[in-house]
Amino acid sequence: LTVEVTLDGRRIELHGLSEEAHEILRHALERNADDKEIKKILEELRK
């Protein structure tokens, strides 16, 4: 799955996400998580 997010003013596409990762990010974006929170989530998903 692919998600497009804006971090530090740049639009980035995240490819190859699992369903779980996609859901976690989608929920964070829906509640307008800040860049710091999104980065933390991405860091966790990379593990």
Rank of each mutant, 00 (worst) to 15 (best):
H22C: 10
E13F: 05
A21C: 09
L42D: 00
I12P: 02
R31T: 12
R11L: 14
N32M: 13
V5N: 03
E37S: 07
N32G: 14
V3F: 14
L29M: 12
K39I: 14
H27E: 15
L42Y: 05
I24P: 00
L42R: 00
D34E: 09
E23Y: 02
R46K: 12
V5L: 07
I12D: 03
L25S: 00
E44A: 13
K36Y: 13
L25R: 00
G16H: 11
L7G: 03
T6V: 15
K40A: 13
A28E: 03
G9F: 00
G16T: 05
T6G: 04
L14R: 01
R11N: 08
L7K: 04
D35G: 09
N32K: 12
I12V: 13
S18T: 12
I24Y: 05
I24W: 04
R11V: 15
L7A: 05
L17F: 07
K47C: 14
R11Q: 11
E20N: 09
I41F: 04
A33V: 08
N32V: 07
H27K: 15
E30L: 09
A33S: 06
E13A: 06
D8R: 02
G9D: 06
R11G: 05
K40W: 07
I24A: 11
A28R: 00
L17I: 07
I38Y: 02
L14T: 04
D34K: 07
I24T: 11
E37R: 03
S18V: 02
N32E: 09
D8E: 12
K39A: 11
I38M: 12
D34A: 09
L7N: 03
I41D: 00
D8Y: 00
R11A: 08
E13V: 15
A21V: 10
E44F: 10
E20H: 12
R31F: 07
K36V: 14
E20A: 13
E43S: 10
H22E: 14
I41C: 01
A21M: 14
D35N: 08
E23F: 03
E37K: 04
V3S: 05
L17E: 01
I41H: 01
H15L: 07
G9I: 01
A28F: 06
E37N: 04
L14D: 02
N32L: 12
E19I: 13
D35H: 08
L14V: 14
E30A: 12
T2H: 09
E23W: 03
H22Q: 10
D35S: 13
E19H: 11
L45W: 08
N32Y: 11
I12H: 05
R46C: 15
I24L: 14
D8K: 02
E4D: 06
L29I: 13
H22M: 13
H22S: 13
L7E: 03
E44L: 10
E4A: 02
L45R: 01
E44M: 14
R11M: 10
E19M: 12
A21E: 15
R26E: 09
K36A: 14
K40G: 10
T2E: 04
R31E: 09
N32F: 13
I38S: 00
K36L: 14
V3M: 15
E20I: 10
E23V: 05
R31Y: 06
K47S: 13
R11P: 08
I12S: 02
T2C: 14
L29R: 02
H15K: 09
L42E: 01
L7H: 05
I12G: 02
L14Q: 02
R46G: 15
E23I: 07
R11D: 07
V5R: 01
I41S: 00
H22N: 11
E19G: 07
A33H: 05
S18I: 02
K40N: 10
R10D: 10
R46L: 15
E19C: 11
E43I: 10
R26A: 09
E4Q: 02
E20C: 06
T6D: 08
L14F: 06
N32W: 09
L1Y: 10
D34L: 08
L1Q: 07
K39Y: 12
V5E: 03
D35C: 05
E19R: 07
I24G: 05
R46V: 14
G16E: 07
K39L: 14
K47G: 12
L45S: 03
S18M: 04
A28N: 01
I41N: 00
L42W: 05
G9A: 02
H22D: 08
V3G: 03
E4T: 14
A28W: 06
L14W: 01
H15T: 12
K47Y: 10
L7F: 01
E19T: 11
E19P: 12
S18N: 07
L42P: 00
A21R: 02
L14I: 15
R26M: 14
V3R: 03
K36I: 13
N32D: 09
L7S: 05
E43A: 12
I41P: 00
D35F: 07
L14K: 01
H22A: 15
E23R: 12
G9E: 04
R10F: 14
D34H: 07
I38E: 00
S18D: 10
K40E: 13
E4N: 05
K40F: 07
R11K: 15
E37G: 03
H22K: 12
V3I: 15
G9R: 00
T6R: 08
K39N: 08
V3Y: 04
E37H: 06
L14H: 02
L1H: 11
R26Q: 14
E37I: 09
I41K: 01
R10N: 14
E43L: 09
G16M: 05
L25D: 02
E13T: 13
L29K: 04
L14P: 01
E30V: 05
L1P: 06
K47V: 15
L25K: 00
S18Q: 04
I12Q: 05
L25P: 02
I24R: 15
I12L: 07
L42C: 04
G16D: 12
E19Y: 12
L45G: 03
L29V: 09
E13W: 03
E43F: 02
E43N: 11
R46A: 15
H15R: 08
H27T: 14
R31V: 10
R10V: 15
E23P: 02
D34F: 05
E44K: 11
D8C: 14
E44H: 11
L7V: 14
E30Y: 02
I41W: 02
R46D: 12
K47H: 13
R10M: 15
A28G: 01
L17Y: 04
L1I: 13
V5F: 02
A33L: 08
R31A: 12
T2I: 09
V5T: 02
H27W: 01
L17V: 06
L1K: 11
L45M: 11
G9Q: 04
L17N: 01
E4L: 08
I38R: 01
E19L: 12
T6N: 11
A33D: 04
L7Y: 00
G9P: 03
A28C: 05
L42K: 00
R31K: 10
G9V: 02
R11E: 08
H15S: 11
R31W: 06
E37A: 08
K36C: 10
I38K: 01
G16F: 09
I38P: 00
G9K: 03
L1S: 08
E30P: 00
A21L: 10
A33I: 06
V3A: 08
H27N: 15
I24E: 10
L42T: 02
L1A: 08
E13N: 06
K47I: 15
K36R: 13
D34R: 06
D34V: 06
R11Y: 09
L1R: 13
D8L: 00
L29E: 04
E4S: 05
G9L: 00
E13H: 10
K47A: 13
E37P: 01
L17T: 01
T6E: 12
E30T: 06
H15I: 09
V3C: 08
A28I: 06
L45K: 01
L14S: 02
A33W: 07
K39C: 07
R26L: 14
K39G: 09
H27Y: 01
L42S: 01
D8W: 00
E19S: 12
I24D: 07
E20P: 04
I12T: 06
R10P: 03
R10Y: 08
L1F: 13
T2K: 11
K47R: 13
V3T: 06
T6I: 15
G16P: 03
R11F: 09
V5Q: 02
E43R: 10
G9N: 04
K36G: 13
A21P: 01
H15N: 09
D34Q: 08
K47Q: 13
A33R: 03
R26T: 14
E43M: 10
K39T: 10
I24V: 09
E44P: 01
K47E: 13
E30N: 07
E30M: 07
T6C: 15
I38A: 01
E44Y: 08
G16I: 05
E4F: 03
H27L: 13
R31C: 10
H15C: 11
R31M: 13
E13L: 09
L17A: 02
N32H: 12
L25V: 08
K36T: 14
V3E: 03
R46P: 06
D34P: 13
R26Y: 04
E23M: 10
A28D: 01
S18G: 07
L29F: 07
I38T: 01
K36P: 06
R11C: 12
E4P: 00
D8V: 03
R26F: 05
E30R: 03
L17H: 01
S18K: 04
N32S: 12
R46Q: 14
L42A: 01
E20W: 09
R31Q: 11
D34S: 13
L25E: 01
L45H: 04
E20S: 11
E37W: 06
E4G: 01
T6L: 13
D34N: 11
S18F: 03
K36F: 14
T6A: 06
R10A: 14
R46S: 13
I24S: 09
G16C: 07
L14A: 04
A28V: 05
H27A: 15
T6M: 13
L45Y: 05
R11I: 15
D8F: 00
L42F: 05
L25G: 00
E13I: 15
I41V: 06
T2V: 11
L14N: 01
L29C: 05
E20K: 11
H15W: 07
